[in-house]
């Protein structure tokens, strides 16, 4: 199917196609413990972007030669369902999915205390059910929740969001159409306590000032997502405590 002409992404009053202002996040829904069979799991909806994450482990590393004597290995698979995108995605892992699996894994490795589980493996699976922009950041956000849900020790949680540039304006949380027709897309993953970046990519072009503005905007979005993460975890586990 042919590429549609570029629509106007921001109108005169600064509204985006879906009615958001430039610095607005899409409606966010966060859940933990959604999959029964995994050791930890989470689900995130950001607008129409819908992502599951599940964690298995720590368990024995297989095959055995992959085991590292003094720490756990972390495996990560970011994958999209075939019907998650406008055009049907071919089955199996695409080059894009392989790359994103790696950057998400490296982001997670930077907060998990892998040294507590020598010779073990921790598997993280991210499944994008519907992709409408920001799937890797939603996936990373969900994966960090799933790790916390699995009781795996970590320095802190990770929250992530993308910022974009469309029609010359820096926007928070671009949707698929804004990403496709926009000038730049910058996914950012931040560990909020230490305020460090654990994932950072940029597709497209931004000036130095725009980059600075983009990162500031990302931090605002991430604060909101982080709050939602904390609330959902405290809600799940926040029960009156007695004789623990």
């Amino acid at each position: 199917m042919e590429q549609a002409a570029k629509p106007k992404l921001i109108d005169e009053s600064g509204r985006r196609l879906d009615g958001r202002g430039p610095t607005d996040l899409r409606p966010l829904k966060v859940e933990v413990g959604v999959l029964e069979k995994s050791d930890g799991s989470a689900y995130i909806e950001l607008g129409k972007t819908k992502v599951f994450a599940a964690v298995y482990g720590p368990k024995e590393a297989h095959p055995k030669h992959l085991a590292v004597p003094d720490r756990a290995i972390l495996n990560c698979r970011y994958h999209m369902t075939s019907f998650s995108t406008d055009e049907r995605k071919t089955l199996g892992m695409t080059r894009r999915e392989i790359e994103l699996s790696k950057v998400i894994r490296e982001a997670l490795e930077s907060v998990v205390f892998l040294e507590e589980f020598p010779r073990s493996a921790i598997d993280v699976f991210i499944e994008v059910v519907q992709a409408d922009g920001g799937t890797r950041t939603a996936g990373l956000t969900a994966a960090s929740l799933a790790l916390a849900d699995a009781g795996i020790p970590m320095r802190e949680l990770i929250a992530a969001v993308a910022v974009g540039k469309v029609d010359g304006t820096i926007i928070l949380d671009p949707s698929d159409i804004e990403d496709k027709h926009g000038e730049a897309d910058m996914p950012v993953g931040i560990a909020p306590r230490s305020n460090t970046m654990v994932l950072l990519q940029l597709n497209g072009k931004m000036t130095k000032d725009e980059l600075k503005k983009g990162l500031e905007l990302a931090q605002i979005g991430i604060q909101n997502i982080y709050q939602a993460q904390c609330e959902v975890l405290k809600k799940k586990y926040g029960v009156s405590m007695t004789e623990v």
Binding site: K37, F83, R88
Partner: peptide, 26 residues
Amino acid sequence: NVVEKANGSALVSMGGTRILTGIKVE
């Protein structure tokens, strides 16, 4: 109708087993 981008979709759970099906038409 659980996935808007699919032409048809359904999420069925039978006890602890959960299946998501989506249909794309080309």
